[in-house]
Structure formats: structure tokens, C-alpha cells
């Protein structure tokens, strides 16, 4: 039996683990991918203390900070989480095992949104990619398009511009919503062209992506499409637990990171909030760990 199980091993989960270990809670972290979405950030330049670092390298440091305090990180897929009411404990079921704890921090982040086009599956890996950090070098001297207008979209476009001969950004809005400093850098990059007020209507090609038809009736010749149209929380476990959410499915917490379920705290990209960055995910993870610590202490004394 653990004091605390942290679900998710991204910046929120890892920071929660760091604090929980310092509070000497018997803690374990369970997540399918250490780092989560942060792994896919090619550069992080807004995390104070470190001027510039890749998301994957930042996660490596966070991970070693956690494991050096003796907290185990278990890489398993979580299939169910239940609250055993009469005992006031939680049970976490993975594909392989089950784990019990007195408190839970839910930090399972979000899942990437897909374009939802019928031909998307066919071209997956054949031009369509969800990871510019991984696949950008394979598009040397080719033309590519990035769909989206967020920080991730702009970062992907900047990375791709180093390899591809031409990078289009296709964005449905009329102004990119990435940080202005990133947009400034982007606009200085010669081989990037931004197409506003447009979405992808159809992708075509024989075996690989060759053409992209846009909703504004324009056709782009491109061999690659990088999808960066945001993400949504994975609703399955949230609904199963009966966590209160906003209308987009994000978990509602108060400023102590408490949810509507006593003993269950939430942090990171999966909660209802305005800004989704590594820095505030980490901060929420710290707060959640502190609140779990206070909760366990009050239960012990009652």
C-alpha cells in the first residue's frame, strides 16, 4: 500500500513525485511514457534556470532528480482507477498489475488531436507525422506543411525549416496564437509561408502524400504534413472516476489542486486552466503533492 500514486510521468507528475519524496510519502509514479508531450518539444526556452534545452533533455534531468530520491517510475498502461469507498483507498489497475494508495494525483496530460480526415490513416507515416522532432530530418529538400497556429506548430515549423526547402503553416485563424517571440523568429525565416483562414480539406497522393487541398480551394504540393492542432484530455479514466470537468473535458480543480473527489488531486495539462506550459505544470505538481501530504496528515490525525 502506497501513501500516494501519481498517475502520469510528465512534468506535473515528476514534480509531484519530487515533492512527495521530500515529504517522505511512500510514492510511486505510473505512466506509459516518461516525459509525455514534453518529449516532443524540440527546444524549451521558457523554463527559468535553464536558458535553452530540448524537452527530452529537461525530462531526463527531472527523472533523475526523482529516481535519486528513491521513487520508482513504472512504465505501464493504466486501464482503470477506482475508489474503494469503505476503506477510503484508491486502486490503480494497469495491463500488468494493480496498485493501492491512500491518495492519488492525476497528471495524465492530454492526447494529440487528429485531423479527422478519412485518408489520415492511409498516409500516417507516409507523409503525415505527429512528431516533427522525430521525423523532420527525413524531409530534407522537400516541401512540408504544418497544420496549426500554437507554440508547438511554430516550433515544428522552425525545426522543419532547417531541413525542408519550403514550409507552409496552415492555420484556421487569422493570427497565430504562439508566443510573440516565437512568431517574430518565424516571420524572419525565409522558407516559411503562413496561410491563414484555411484548413486541410483533402490529402492526396499515390503511396505518399503529394498534394494538400485546402478549404480556401488552394492546392499545395507537399510531401509532408505535421499535425499540431492541439490536444484533449483522455476522457476515459476521468469519466470513470466521476471527476468534475469543464465542458471541454478538462478536470476542475481549486488552487490547492483538489478535485471534487477527496484524496484525489490533479495537475498539469489535464486540468481546466488558461496556460499549458511545462513551468506551470511543474508548479501545479508541487502544489498537488503538498495538498496530498496535508490530506494524508489530517487523515492520520483524525
Amino acid at each position: 500500500m502506497y501513501d500516494l500514486i501519481i498517475l502520469g510521468a510528465g512534468p506535473a507528475g515528476l514534480t509531484a513525485a519530487l515533492f512527495a519524496a521530500r515529504y517522505r510519502l511512500k510514492t510511486v509514479v505510473i505512466g506509459k511514457e516518461i516525459g509525455g508531450q514534453a518529449n516532443y518539444a524540440s527546444v524549451v526556452e521558457n523554463y527559468p534556470g535553464i536558458k535553452s534545452i530540448s524537452g527530452a533533455d529537461l525530462i531526463k534531468i527531472m527523472k533523475s532528480q526523482v529516481t535519486s530520491l528513491g521513487v520508482k517510475i513504472i512504465e505501464e498502461n493504466i486501464t482503470n482507477v477506482t475508489k474503494v469507498k469503505e476503506k477510503q483507498i484508491f486502486s490503480v489497475i494497469t495491463e500488468k498489475n494493480s496498485y493501492q494508495a491512500k491518495a492519488i494525483i492525476f497528471a495524465l496530460g492530454t492526447e494529440r488531436k487528429k485531423l479527422n480526415l478519412p485518408e489520415e490513416e492511409k498516409f500516417l507515416g507516409k507523409g503525415i507525422s505527429y512528431c516533427a522532432t522525430c521525423d523532420a530530418p527525413l524531409f530534407r529538400n522537400k516541401s512540408v506543411a504544418v497544420v496549426g497556429g500554437s507554440d508547438s506548430a511554430v516550433m515544428s515549423a522552425m525545426l522543419l525549416s532547417k531541413y525542408a526547402k519550403k514550409v507552409y503553416i496552415i492555420y484556421r485563424g487569422k493570427e497565430l496564437r504562439a508566443e510573440p517571440i516565437k512568431v517574430e523568429q518565424l516571420k524572419k525565416t525565409r522558407n516559411i509561408e503562413i496561410i491563414y483562414n484555411a484548413e486541410v480539406q483533402k490529402i492526396s497522393g499515390k503511396n505518399f502524400v503529394e498534394k494538400i487541398l485546402l478549404t480556401n480551394k488552394k492546392t499545395l504540393e507537399a510531401q509532408g504534413i505535421f499535425v499540431e492542432i492541439g490536444s484533449t484530455p483522455s476522457t476515459y479514466l476521468i469519466q470513470k472516476l466521476g471527476l468534475e470537468t469543464d465542458n471541454q473535458g478538462y478536470i476542475i480543480t481549486n488552487n490547492a489542486m483538489e478535485t471534487n473527489i477527496p484524496g484525489l488531486f490533479a495537475a498539469g495539462d489535464c486540468i481546466s486552466k488558461k496556460l499549458r506550459q511545462i513551468i506551470n505544470a511543474a508548479g501545479e505538481g508541487a502544489t498537488a503533492a503538498f495538498s496530498a501530504y496535508a490530506y494524508l496528515k489530517s487523515k492520520k490525525n483524525s
Partner: peptide, 21 residues
Amino acid sequence: DVSKNEKAAQKMVEKSGQMGV
């Protein structure tokens, strides 16, 4: 390392029929 070795990158695409690593 297909980010540096272009020939290996081509070989990978031919063999796997796709462009992801």
C-alpha cells in the same frame, strides 16, 4: 542516424514503405 546519413534515410523509406522513425 537518418538525420545525418541521407543514404540510410532513403534505404529506410524504401524498406519500410514509410517515413517515420
